[in-house]
């Protein structure tokens, strides 16, 4: 029997959750015994060629490309997991929520203290660029998400335990300190 296929993506995130995934250290060898990692920044495979068992999403959606990417994941994965604060709640990128988009763009491209080279005062608007959304959306406000693993980033053990639980069908233990941070 072939191993279950796992895909991962980092949308509007910082790759910290992927780093945490790598923090499972030597267990990564055991992981590849359990699953095949397909489309993922880790493998640099860019397209879905078959149905996947699990998709792991880091980051929320801040632009149209994130949305397309996430919708692709939903279509091609049986189970989708929101990994980390940004995917679950929007995280730091969502701090722009509530500020009009024009103000954000002005600050980033025209008036910010570190803007020196944009002498022509233009906003990037090439058709090839993703379009910004009105706010940053958590993943489940775009598509259905089956599981949520909290943390910023979620600790490596939690990711490991969750994947093992999912693959073996055992119940995942979620001790208090894993879901409560303050």
């Amino acid at each position: 029997m072939s191993k279950p296929l796992v895909a991962t993506a980092s949308l509007a995130g910082c790759f910290g959750c992927h780093m945490s995934l790598l923090d499972i250290d030597e267990r990564i060898l055991k992981l590849v015994e359990l699953v095949d990692i397909g489309k993922s920044p880790v493998t640099d495979i860019k397209t879905f060629t078959q149905q996947y068992a699990v998709g792991i999403i880091e980051g929320g959606c801040c632009n149209s490309e994130n949305v397309h990417n996430l919708q692709e994941f939903r279509k091609n994965c049986d189970i989708l997991i929101s990994l980390g604060e940004c995917a679950i709640m929007g995280g730091l990128p969502a701090m722009r929520n509530g500020i009009p988009i024009e103000e954000c763009l002005n600050e980033a491209y025209l008036e910010g203290p570190t803007v020196h080279l944009n002498t022509e005062k233009i906003f990037p608007n090439d058709d090839e660029l993703p379009m910004l959304l009105d706010r940053v959306y958590p993943a489940h406000e775009i598509v259905k998400i089956d599981y949520f693993l909290p943390g910023c980033p979620p600790r490596a053990d939690l990711i490991w335990d969750a994947l093992v639980a999912l693959l073996t069908g055992k119940e995942l233990e979620l001790p208090y300190e894993v879901v409560k941070y303050d």
Binding site: V67, I101, E102, P124, M131, I142
Partner: peptide
Amino acid sequence: DYDTCFDLASAVADSCKVVNR
């Protein structure tokens, strides 16, 4: 069994207007 009501066209409308695209 799931509907988020997300509408990409209206979500990008504002930013496209600002950057003139």
